[in-house]
Design a protein around this nucleic acid. Structure first.
Length: 888
RNA sequence: GGGCGUAUAGCUCAGUUGGUUAGAGCGCUGCCUUCACACGGCAGAGGUCACAAGUUCGAAUCUUGUUACGCCCA
């Protein structure tokens, strides 16, 4: 006997272990089945499971479990990425607690420490994924720093370099002065900050007492100014173009240039130019061949190019000193308040400096072209489609990708420098030595580049590096390209675009996946993004502990409608926990009524209307769910399954089956038991992708005939011929009749204990047959004593003490003599008459419109006419009932 | 400034090519401790589908504009 409620915590761990041990998650490269492949977006190795993970991995698991059940050879490739900056920070923080810096240890020892940390703590997220019930092929788990993946990285780097698509250049990059590394544009967050415009007067050379005024939000950069720019058409400055001014404090003679970058509308119309510390100024500098003076060191302190008094001081300290000194010189014209954008590092949260350094770049423009085309011509499909625009937008304006990072944790760039700075890019040191020897004609000392690669460089290779590339493995042949990439929109630039670029470049133009399903962001119930600082983070593991994993999964699935963010409230999870209990109790009911699974049960062969009906409904439900999953309409899949299980199977089928179980028609009883057991099995199958634990547990507990795991069973293949429209009509009629009687009883406050007789007037033969077939069920569910079919001649005799309702045009008298409340009944009928009257009016209007009749399709017109006739019929009957009551 | 998106019941949201008397869950009201389930059952209230104009026989659905809000990029 099953327990009274489902207890998720008891079963989840046990079942997960069983699944994992069984090997049911594994892909089978040797099999002949068609593959279904999802590359799991590798979570950050330092990460722990948050709601976004819970959503994305639930959806992926649904796709994977569903496709596995349909018989495909399914590979869900798991793994983590090494998260260069984040991981290095974690380990540095640990060392910091013991007052040790990474420099104390040295590079080699430090990297060893990171590996130690990874071995101990790196499994957190993958263990949490197990709690979510995910079913990836764990033995294939990969890490971006694995030897295999690292050799793929080296190969890609060297190849791209030899193709001229990776190059070394001195350019402005976003420099993080806290983490002491370059970061990519995407890792910079622009924040709106209240600041000031300081207006400085620069004296004009050779014109005593004349000045040109420039405004700046970053006064300290004036130490690196090498020009002042004005707009070429700006009449105020025509005579100054080509002249020089003297940079105060520094004393440098700098040119006044004409450049369209200067905006005459802004400030004074003149702008100071600091090519080494501003991206726009850098471009201006290139146009006018200006000197680039770098005034900062790695820590964003002022370096030795500046006057002595500022050297070694922090940039913001120097800002204050410069302002004070300018004021002292009488060169500070005014200070304006302003709001402007300031770049911050998304990891370090310090102000990022544009900084002139030697870095490695990928020429992304070349790689972006085929990657764009693949989406344009439909080889890759974004779902929902509108995300294509986001993708194109970025691809069209793509910038060189700075891939070098001044970190110790990551893939060290395979470039070796000779004594004169010439470098040799090779996959191994031996090859580099050989290349150097060929170049210099002798052995020289080589030093490997100290920089490592951006983490995204290695994750861009994920769709093929995990399959063994550059080796031509069986896996690579079978599982590339994958079927779908499932991820959030925030990662389209970081990762999706780069995987497409790298995949196509290294896999003979073959795309890495066919679909990109972009899901929503999970927000809190007020629509706020969850963040630690706001304190509105909901931990998925807490929800799992409280409500069970299946409840959480079902909630996320039901809310995962395309194109809309998910606002998550715990009350929703509670609701789906209740759903799990409902399923559990339905199983219990089946068990108590000896609904045993029958070998070789054929749903097509069932005889009773009730059983034929539910069999058809199962076929419909299975189709709804599979169709929805295949179209990434997860909310429809969840709603369809929920509606069927609760609204159809529990609310109707099981209730209607009760009189059969308690009756004495042995054949009907046996058939209904067998059918109920079969339907319940189908429910377990249909729900399994979304709610794997409870379904697997019930599979184990409900029948000894259930051998093997539910997760390894085949998805229901139910033909449409199980749907019998005649039976459906018959059942619908019975359900409508029950509904109407219940409505009457409820409005008249007839107590449930009172069983009442009902009379149907002039019912058609078909109707009589249908209701006779469902007699016991109608009696039970509507608490009816007897059902009698009468002719119109007997209406007067039954009408007294009865309430009338109309079902399909047939008057139904419900004898509620003792409970009748004439006023209430009049009100009830009036309301119904009013409602249907309004409808009739609207229909008449529609049908008397000649243009509707002549232009609308014939079948629509016919349908509308039929609806009007039905409504008129019902109105007449209700009116008769009302008149009768009024006469009492 | 450019782009994308959203406005439907008290709340959170469905509503796929225009043809419904606009749905669900939660919440709310009334009744019911009926032999699976009170994490339950039955019944019910609640919406001029943001606003305005247009296309159409017909608009929550298509077009344009207005308003409000959100996100991304500059």
């Amino acid at each position: 006997m099953l327990d009274k409620t489902y207890n998720p915590t008891d079963v989840e761990n046990k079942l997960y272990e069983k699944w994992e041990k069984s090997g049911a998650f594994a892909a089978h490269p040797e099999s002949k089945e068609n593959p279904y492949v999802i590359m799991m977006p590798p979570p950050n190795v330092t990460g722990s499971l948050h709601m976004g993970h819970a959503l994305t991995f639930t959806l992926q698991d649904i796709l994977v479990r569903y496709n596995r059940m349909t018989g495909k050879d399914t590979l869900w490739q798991p793994g983590t990425d090494h998260a260069g900056i984040a991981t290095q920070m974690v380990v540095e923080r640990q060392l910091g607690a013991q007052n040790v810096t990474r420099h104390d240890l040295g590079r080699e020892k430090f990297v060893e420490k990171v590996w130690e940390w990874k071995e101990e703590s790196g499994g957190t997220i993958t263990n949490q994924l197990r709690r979510l019930g995910t079913s990836p092929d764990w033995p294939r788990e990969r890490f971006t720093m694995d030897e295999g993946l690292s050799s793929a990285v080296r190969k890609v780097f060297v190849t791209l370099h030899k193709q001229g698509l990776i190059y070394r250049d001195k350019r402005l990059v976003n420099w993080d002065p806290k983490l002491l590394t370059a970061i990519s544009d995407l890792e910079v967050v622009q924040k709106e900050v209240k600041g000031h415009y300081w207006h400085f007067k620069y004296p004009i050379e050779g014109r005593e007492g004349e000045f040109i005024t420039v405004a700046t939000t970053r006064p300290e950069t004036m130490l690196g100014d090498t020009a002042v720019a004005v707009h070429p058409d700006d009449e105020r400055y025509q005579d100054l173009i080509g002249k020089y001014c003297i940079l105060p404090i520094v004393g440098r003679r700098i040119r006044i240039v004409a450049d369209e970058y200067a905006d005459p509308e802004k400030g004074s119309g003149a702008v100071k130019i600091t090519p080494a510390h501003d991206f726009n100024d850098f471009e201006v500098g290139k146009r006018h061949d200006l000197e680039k003076i770098n005034i900062l060191d790695d820590h964003a302190c002022i370096n030795d190019t500046a006057p002595e008094e500022y050297r070694g001081l922090d940039r913001f300290k120097v800002r204050d000193l410069i302002i004070a000194r300018m004021d002292e010189f009488g060169l500070l014209e005014k200070i304006e308040d302003t709001v402007h954008m300031v770049p911050y590092g998304d990891r370090s949260n310090v102000v990022i400096e544009p900084y002139l350094t030697d870095q490695w770049f990928v020429n992304a423009e070349v790689l972006a072209k085929p990657a764009s085309e693949a989406v344009e011509d439909g080889r890759i499909r974004f779902v929902p489609k509108n995300w294509e625009n986001t993708y194109f937008e970025w691809m069209r304006n793509i910038q060189p990708w700075c891939i070098s990072r001044q970190l110790w944790w990551g893939h060290r760039i395979p470039a070796w420098f000779g004594p004169d700075g010439t470098f040799f890019v090779e996959e191994t040191e031996e090859e580099a030595i050989a290349a150097a020897k060929a170049h210099y004609g002798k052995d020289v000392e080589l030093n490997q580049e100290t920089d490592v690669l951006d983490t995204w460089f290695s994750s861009a290779l994920w769709p093929f590096s995990t399959l063994g590339w550059p080796e031509q493995t069986a896996e690579l042949g079978k599982y590339y390209p994958g079927d779908v990439l499932v991820t959030g929109f925030d990662i389209i630039f970081f990762w999706v675009a780069r995987m497409i670029m790298m995949g196509m470049h290294f896999m003979d133009g073959q795309v890495p996946f066919r679909d990109v399903y972009i899901h929503a962001l999970v927000r809190d119930e007020n629509g706020q993004k969850m963040s630690k600082s706001k304190g509105n983070v909901i931990d998925p593991l807490d929800l799992i502990s409280e409500y069970g994993c299946d409840a959480l999964r079902m909630t996320l699935t039901a809310l995962a409608a395309q194109g809309r963010d998910i606002k998550l409230a715990a009350s929703r999870v509670e609701g789906y926990r209740n759903f799990a209990t409902k399923i559990w109790n339905a199983a219990r009911f089946c068990e108590m009524n000896e609904c045993n699974v029958i070998d070789g049960f054929d749903p097509k062969s069932v005889k009773t209307t009730l059983n034929r009906w539910i069999v058809g409904k199962v076929a419909e439900a299975a189709k709804t769910v599979s169709g929805s999953i295949e179209n990434y309409r997860f909310n429809d899949a969840a709603a369809g399954a929920y509606q069927f299980v609760w609204g159809t199977f529990c609310d109707w089928y099981l209730e209607l089956a009760k009189p059969v179980f308690m009756g004495d028609d042995a054949d009907a009883k046996a058939e209904t038991r067998a059918t109920a057991a079969w339907v319940f099995d189908q429910i377990l199958l249909i729900l399994h992708p979304v709610m794997p634990f409870i379904t697997e547990e019930l599979w184990a507990q409900t029948s000894e005939k259930h051998t093997g795991l539910l997760m390894a069973q085949a998805w229901p293949a139910l033909a449409d011929d199980l749907i019998d429209t005649g039976v459906e009509a018959e059942m619908d009629l019975a359900l409508r009749l029950i509904g109407n009687i219940r409505g009457v009883r409820s409005e008249m406050n007839v107590p449930p204990s009172a069983e009442v007789p009902i009379y149907l007037v002039d019912a058609t033969d078909a109707m009589k047959a249908a209701i006779a077939a469902q007699e016991a069920q109608v009696k039970r569910l509507a608490r009816v004593a007897v059902i009698e079919f009468i002719g119109a001649d007997r209406v007067e005799s039954v009408a007294k003490g009865a309430i009338q309702t109309v079902v399909d045009g047939v008057p139904v008298f419900v004898s509620v003599a003792d409970f009748i409340d004439i006023a209430a009944e009049k009100a009830r009928l009036e309301k119904e008459i009013d409602k249907i009257g309004k409808y009739i009016k609207a229909q008449e209007g529609k049908l008397s419109n000649e243009r509707f009749v002549s232009r609308a399709p014939e079948e629509i017109v016919a349908a509308e006419k039929a609806k009007l006739a039905d409504a008129r019929d019902t109105l007449t009957k209700l009116q008769e009932g009302f008149d009768r009551i009024a006469a009492m």
